[in-house]
Amino acid sequence: MVKNVSSRATEQVLPLVAPRVREILKRLDDKTWGKIEEIRLREGGPLQLCRAGGELMLSPAGEPADAGRAYRVEEEDITLTLQLVSKCSLYAFEEELRRGYLTVPGGHRVGLSGKAVLEKGYIKVLRHLSSMNFRIAREVPGTAEKVLPYLRAPQGGGIFSTLIISPPQAGKTTLLRDIVRCLSDGVPGLRIKPRKVGLVDERSEIAGCFEGSPQLQVGKRTDVLDSAPKGEGMMLLLRSMSPEVMATDEIGREEDAAAVEEMVNAGVTVVTSAHASYLEELYHRPSIRRLLEQEVFPRILVLSRSRGAGTIEQVFDPVSEKNILPRLS
């Protein structure tokens, strides 16, 4: 299973990387590939890979090396990679150049950095691109199964609105995606019936849409609104798709919180996430604090990397103010 996932990612990502770098990456074995989270190319910098256990730099022969002996990425490598990623047409990705990343088939994301060109104080486009970061999208179906029993309301078979919090790179999006998939498809074994789900994917990270169609599994009954601002997007989907569950990630702005309130008032279950390492941190953010005080989220999932990405630390019930996850021995 893991091998399939990693070899698929290899097949999808490698053709988009400049041939010289590709030859080096091809020498990696499947096991190493399976753990890679990022491939970083910087003009004049060493070829760097990031994985769960830390970074890895590669020599021109594909061997682990220190920064001094690692393969040095040249301007030509960046240029050719850009051409391969954009089908020789960077101009067709202006919106993406403004946001700083684009999504490729398979839902992987390519982050870009260079010189920002401003218009009226806002970034209009990026030019002279000098850094690229391939973020490998990994679906881990089954991650949600551990928490789903806690999200089910004791009576009526409903689902509690849920907020997932964690520090960066601890598996928030992966868990959110799998919860969305499970709610959309239904899990008979856990007595969860299929539901209509609306998914607002502002940064194309949850469904990994490429040209509007989801590349990652988000369920059969999920309508994805890609690249839309969360607040406005939720309102649009509420009107247009009448979802039973609304999902989005990284809420934080005032308008996001207002839209979440609106959803809950309309009887829609909200599943979302926010950046925070601890529960207390949430109370420092006024918009989220307001949602918590209104008891919008009967369940808060706290994740960490303590036993690998996606470790579930707590399933917090704000009403009883208790962690309802049984302690592991």
């Binding site: 240029t79 850009l82 954009s86 020789c88 960077l90 101009y91 202006e94 150049l97 486009v125 030019r127």
Partner: peptide
Amino acid sequence: SLGLTDREGQ
């Protein structure tokens, strides 16, 4: 600069 710049540049 074919395919390497934004729309304006092209």
